[in-house]
Write a protein that binds this DNA or RNA. Structure first.
Length: 593
RNA sequence: GCAUCCAUAGCUCAGCUGGAUAGAGCAACGGUUUUCUAAACCGUAGGUCAUAGGUUCGAAUCCUAUUGGGUGUACCA
């Protein structure tokens, strides 16, 4: 039993013994003692006052005396207002360190038997990935890793939006103005090449709209009547009809895009267990609609369209099937949700999708619940905020989009520049250097994007490069490398335990308490789907180590073997936590830098 | 209009189910290297937690209203 739980139990006992009252455990409020006071664990006594019917100070003192007398580990206490600060014996902390934290499996959480799907990335195939997608990908990947670390079995899936009017636009523009250009002939990454034609389409389309407006049409009419958009719509129909030529072009261009995405995904370090393609799922969901009609959850209007009335739940009426019998977005998602469930028998299913779709998912989940799907309660929309530029939103048409590939290249280049300026890589081979620059650049980028709570908007200033100092990825990477170097120099052996009577400095004690929290941090970060909270914890650990490192005399030269071993053990655990913690964030920590 | 999310230091962000004097980083200023990697460490300065009420022994945190901003409200996806 850990010390906190023990104190809770004994506090309840104390209230019974001192005041003959039954104190619910939930009323026992423990927190870390603030560093300016003596002690490590603080009991907030205000909730107990109702039971003791005495002043906070008196209650705290009486509880303190009881706990000191009845809990072996507690060696003393002090009372500040309504706060009872408890001092726990050093020996207890050293024991905790030796028996729990130093175990090789520290930080691993046993399997919980839950099967969880995380759907993320889900790109359109008409243009390359940008910064918004980068946030999505990093978030989806690290949430998956987080859930794995907390004991779940995780399936990462990517639902690719490979069909529809958007890809037809690129195809059409390529047909008209492409002159047979290919990624090879143009020397352009496939996704960028297809994106180029998407932009051309848009430009030419706008010209046509202008021309029609000159002829007296309204903006709305012009948008509908422009020959290009009509041609794109015709192409979509041809695609749905299975027209050989269109399908062949579609396959070719999608292949270009996938080749391009593969490179970006590889650089981002993300992966998937399964791909779903909308070209395979877009007809899905009609069975579900039938099901809903049969059970009376849906109703049919005179024109044949199918609806659900959600006004009783504070939402709107929602169309689930068009009058002509074709699917809309939500029809498809109903079907896809069912398919995922049939494929994997999931306990939970996470959708990593931006917050502009909050309403859509609210509706989707509610409908599935109303259809009586038992698994609907396991669905969760991990909604994240947009990435803003100082000028506001990213807009592809205004050319203010931060391209993912460009950004990655810039981050690596900056990492190279900064590293070379520090002059620490003389003994690295060229290959090692490239690897290091890549890891540092991506570490800076990933940490920058992941340290912010998912649901918050995130500001990115392209003019100001991402920091490499302070609360950053490279700071954590540097701390890790530094520890590795220290362990190497000190001939560290990991199987040595020190005597629990060893004296601890304030920082060493604080470190043990912080390190001990790692498993709980993973669990709570996983529970709230928040890599950000884990990132902040890892930063605290790195910061704490640096403080410790500066305070103690050179460990390598320490003559007291017990003290030396203790400090090396602390360093070793810190490095392990930094490594496995950043691993969950998708960040690589180098052995030296 | 309705729905929903957000508002904390000059800037970017933390702040757990309400708990002590609201914390970091960057930027600014000052200091630390004959000592294990200075991408580090220590210090100074910087706040009416958007505003006004309310609940509470106690509110950045919960409730209400207001202000400002984002997003959504398609037989688009």
């Amino acid at each position: 039993m850990n010390i906190e739980q023990h104190i809770v139990t004994k506090t309840v006992e104390a209230v019974k013994s001192l005041y003959s009252q039954d104190l619910p455990e939930a009323q026992v409020n423990l927190q870390d003692t603030r560093s300016e006071f003596e002690g490590q664990i603080t009991l907030v006594v205000f909730p107990v006052v109702r039971f003791s019917k005495k002043s906070p100070e008196v209650t705290a003192t009486e509880l303190g005396e009881y706990l000191q007398a009845n809990v072996d580990e507690i060696t003393g206490f002090n009372v500040v207002k309504g706060f009872l600060n408890l001092s726990v014996a050093n020996a207890h902390w050293v024991d905790l360190f030796n028996t729990t934290i130093l175990r090789p499996d520290f930080g691993t959480i046993p399997a919980n038997g839950k099967k969880v799907m995380v759907e993320y990335s889900s790109p359109n195939t008409n243009k390359p990935l940008h910064l918004g997608h980068v946030r999505n990908n990093l978030l989806g990947y690290s949430v998956s890793e987080l859930l794995k670390a907390s004991g779940s079995e995780v399936y990462k899936v990517n639902l690719v939006n490979d069909r529809g009017i958007h890809i037809c636009k690129s195809m059409l523009a390529w047909q008209k103005w492409g002159n047979g250009e290919t990624p090879e002939s143009a020397g352009i990454k496939g996704d960028h090449l297809v994106g180029k034609y998407y932009v051309i389409f848009d430009k030419e389309y706008k010209k046509e709209i202008e021309a029609l407006k000159q002829e007296g049409q309204t903006e709305e009419e012009a948008k509908k009547n422009a020959p290009l958009i009509k041609a794109a719509q015709a192409m979509l129909l041809a695609w749905e009809a299975g027209d050989d030529e269109v399908i062949s072009l579609w396959k070719t261009m999608n292949t270009w895009v996938y080749d391009g995405f593969e490179v970006t995904y590889k650089n981002l370090g993300v992966d998937f267990d399964k791909f779903y393609y909308e070209s395979n799922t877009y007809l899905l969901g009609k069975d579900t609609v039938e099901e809903g009609l049969a059970s009376g959850v849906f109703y049919k209007k005179e024109d044949g369209s199918v609806w659900i009335d959600l006004t009783a739940d504070g939402l709107d009426q929602k169309l689930v099937l068009r009058a002509d019998g074709t699917s809309v977005y939500i029809t498809q998602d109903l079907g896809t949700a069912q398919m995922k469930q049939d494929d994997f028998e999931l306990d939970e299913s996470i959708y990593v999708v931006g917050n502009e779709q909050d309403y859509h998912f609210k509706v989707l989940f509610l409908i599935l619940e109303k259809l009586g799907k038992s698994w609907a309660k396991g669905l969760y929309h991990l909604s994240y905020g947009m990435v803003d530029l100082p000028s506001g939103k990213m807009k592809s048409r205004e050319g203010t989009v931060v391209d993912a590939d460009d950004l990655i290249a810039e981050m690596v280049a900056t990492a190279k520049e900064k590293t070379e300026a520090l002059g620490k890589v003389d003994r690295f081979s060229e290959e090692e250097k490239e690897q290091l620059y890549f890891n540092i650049g991506m570490g800076a980028l990933k940490y920058f994007l992941l340290k912010v709570e998912p649901k918050k908007r995130l500001l990115f200033d392209p003019a100001e490069s991402i920091d490499f100092q302070g609360n950053t990825g490279p700071f954590i990477q540097y701390t890790h490398a530094r520890i590795k170097s220290l362990l190497l120099k000190a001939d560290f052996r990991e199987d040595q335990r020190v005597d629990n009577q060893i004296p601890l400095s304030a920082t060493e004690l604080e470190m043990i308490i912080l390190l001990a929290k790692y498993p709980a941090e993973i669990a709570s970060a996983a529970k709230s789907f928040s890599p950000a909270s884990l990132a902040n914890y890892i930063y605290e650990v790195a910061k704490m180590f640096n403080k410790f490192y500066h305070e103690v005399p050179p460990i390598v030269k320490e003559e007291d073997q017990q003290l030396k071993q203790l400090r090396l053990n602390l360093s070793w655990v810190t490095a392990n936590i930094l490594k496995s913690g950043t691993r969950i964030l998708g960040i690589e920590v180098p052995e030296r830098m």
